[in-house]
């Protein structure tokens, strides 16, 4: 599967303010990002700065007020199975078993018969074979997240948008899933945009880290991560990058709060 490049040019988005009628609140402002095909980029920023909103725009579920979004130089006109999105909430379909949730992507595209064999593979990938016939209600939060991940991966999207997909996992499972996602990324060279609150995860996984400011979200800084893969979480380069980014985030938070005050 070939990956896609992704360009965002001066993207802006505002929502109606909930408290005042007829006024709008800017959530994203002049966001310009360019992802090469096969790149893995992380998006970090304070809560409420518009990360999920940005992913929805790229997925084609919402449309920007200004600017343009291009996939392989083509404007995004709506959702497509080529751009997979793992939502912040797992949002599993409660009326389907785990197996059928994972199959949903294939069923929606009408290719379930041909590709049924892959379902098992993805169930094994996220370690849920034993729960194939359980309903989502019986899953823990982390298990539900893993199902959501498998459900998005099974379509082999060219662009994969991940909104804190590993947020509810314990440290061990989380690290294992990070390696699994990296392995998939390396095998398929999918273009990935990963939202995370975990700086270690961002450094461990990505080619570049984009830091957003507080709302309205603008790009604070883009940090390339030049460490060799597989990365060592305890190497001194890793740790110094980590403290540098933490400082930047602290700064980003402070400055925008001064601006809004």
């Amino acid at each position: 599967m070939v990956a896609s490049s992704l360009q965002l040019r001066d993207v802006g988005k505002s929502f109606p303010a909930p408290d005042q009628p007829l006024t709008y609140r800017t959530v994203l402002e002049t966001i310009s990002i360019s992802l090469e095909a096969g790149e893995l980029v992380s998006l970090v920023g304070p809560s409420g700065c518009g990360k999920s909103t940005l992913l929805r725009l790229i997925a084609g579920l919402d449309f920007p007020d200004s600017g343009e979004l291009l996939v392989d130089e083509e404007p995004i006109s709506g959702p497509s199975a080529e751009r997979g999105l793992v939502f912040q909430d797992p949002n599993l379909f409660p009326w389907l078993t785990v197996r059928r949730n994972i199959e949903a992507g294939l069923a929606a595209r009408g290719v379930l018969q041909q590709k049924r064999s892959e379902v098992k593979e993805f169930m094994r990938l996220v370690g849920l074979e034993a729960f194939a016939d359980a309903y989502p209600h019986h899953l823990s939060g982390g298990m539900a997240q893993r199902v959501a991940l498998a459900r998005a991966l099974i379509n082999h999207p060219k662009v994969l948008l991940l909104d804190e997909p590993l947020g509810a996992l314990d440290a061990f499972t989380r690290m294992r899933m990070q390696d699994e996602v990296l392995r998939l990324w390396q095998n398929r060279r999918t273009t990935m945009l990963l939202v995370t609150h975990d700086i270690d995860e961002a450094i461990y996984m990505s080619d570049r880290i984009i830091i957003l400011t507080q709302r309205p979200g603008t790009i604070e800084q883009i940090i390339p991560i030049a460490l060799d893969r597989p990365r060592d979480r305890s190497s001194s380069d890793f740790l110094s990058l980590r403290s540098e980014i933490l400082e930047l985030l602290h700064f980003a938070g402070n400055r925008s709060s001064q601006v809004t005050a």
Partner: peptide, 24 residues
Amino acid sequence: SYLDVARTLGANARYLVFRIAIPA
């Protein structure tokens, strides 16, 4: 959000009505 998920999975209108909205 169920409809959004289905749309990012490549669902068409028929799938959205018969496999998402009606079961929900």
